[in-house]
């Protein structure tokens, strides 16, 4: 315990000794985290948008003509109890025909000739909620087709997805790649900052080694300072990200649609980001200290 208190004192001493250098390092680390955070956030937002757009939030359950009125009522009630289901409306064949004619407008000539019996009875299901819930309920509804008595088919309004799904998948992939590159660069920046700091302490480390200090004794204050950089740099980056989020969220909603900037997701992201920042800086600090100690020899 006392040894750790001493390491802490050494670390604080080191921070006081070169305040400007440490401020610079903290901002370098903050910048790296900010870049990484922005890319992760944009990737998350694109993912959220992709979920909400591609999956569609309206589904149509086509019913067999043989399904009795009472069974249809039970099915309606069952679907209404699924998580995220906001509304279940029965659509009669006549209503379906009428709506289609209205929708087609001047091109409805052929449909007008069709008998109302051509259209099946359907249940129009509206789903809302977070992407995971929507997706889970959609899958559950799809599983009804051909399995549940009286359900002929289940269709979603996902034509948009069929057309543009690949573009979105590609954009998510590009965002993920970019994120990887930025994280690597961030790691390199943090590592370089730690390495540069250690370089300035080579003489001191050499003296400690000459006095018989163990590698752990020399490494501990270096890692503590790295942790400080990570903690403060991470907090600064998260503060800036919060600012960017507050200013950029409305713009993102306009660009990507509602739900693209979920505050809950941001809070979760913040917690994950803070842990990641600490882990990254502890690891890079230790790595930098290890590399530096390999280069330090006992000198006369």
């Amino acid at each position: 315990m006392r040894t750790w208190a001493y390491y802490l004192r050494l670390a604080i001493h080191e921070l006081k000794r070169r305040p400007l250098g440490h401020v610079f390092t903290v901002f370098t680390v903050a910048l790296a985290f900010l870049l990484a955070g922005l890319v992760i956030w944009v990737a998350e937002s694109v993912k959220v948008a992709e979920h909400s757009w591609s999956a569609g939030q309206r589904m149509t359950v086509l019913l067999e003509p043989t399904l009795a009125e009472a069974d249809r009522g039970r099915l309606e009630a069952e679907i209404a109890s699924f998580p995220g289901v906001r509304d279940v409306t029965a659509v009669s064949p006549e209503q379906a025909r009428r709506e289609l004619i209205e929708a087609l407008g001047p091109d409805s000539g052929l449909v007008v000739e069709l008998e109302s019996g051509f259209f099946p009875t359907a249940l129009d299901v509206v789903i809302s909620g977070d992407p995971e819930t929507v997706r889970a309920t959609q899958n559950r509804l799809r599983q009804l087709a051909g399995v549940h008595r009286g359900v002929g088919d289940v269709r979603s309004l996902d034509r948009w997805n069929l057309r543009f799904g690949n573009v979105f998948e590609l954009s998510v992939l590009v965002a993920a790649l970019l994120c990887g590159v930025v994280l690597l660069v961030s790691g390199w920046v943090i590592m370089s900052a730690a390495r540069a700091r250690v370089e300035t302490q080579v003489d001191e480390l050499s003296i400690l080694r000459s006095l018989g200090a163990s590698p752990g004794f020399m490494r501990a204050p270096l890692v503590l300072v790295s942790l400080f950089h990570g903690l403060v740099g991470g907090l600064v980056a998260l503060g800036l990200l919060a600012g960017v989020f507050l200013l950029g969220a409305p713009l993102l909603e306009v660009l990507l649609g509602p739900g693209a900037s979920d505050l809950r997701a941001f809070v979760l992201f913040t917690a994950r980001g803070a842990s990641l920042a600490l882990a990254v800086t502890a690891f890079t600090g230790m790595l930098a200290a290890r590399v530096a100690l390999l280069t330090v020899r006992v000198r006369g």
């Binding site: 400690l208 080694r209 000459s210 006095l211 018989g212 006992v298 006369g300």
Partner: peptide, 29 residues
Amino acid sequence: LRKVAMVHEADRLLGDKTVIENVALPLRI
């Protein structure tokens, strides 16, 4: 290195630490 101490030609003290801190260093180690 702890059993066989060495004083180098250049004293190799930690300049930004006090005399007492320098002397205490091997004990802390």
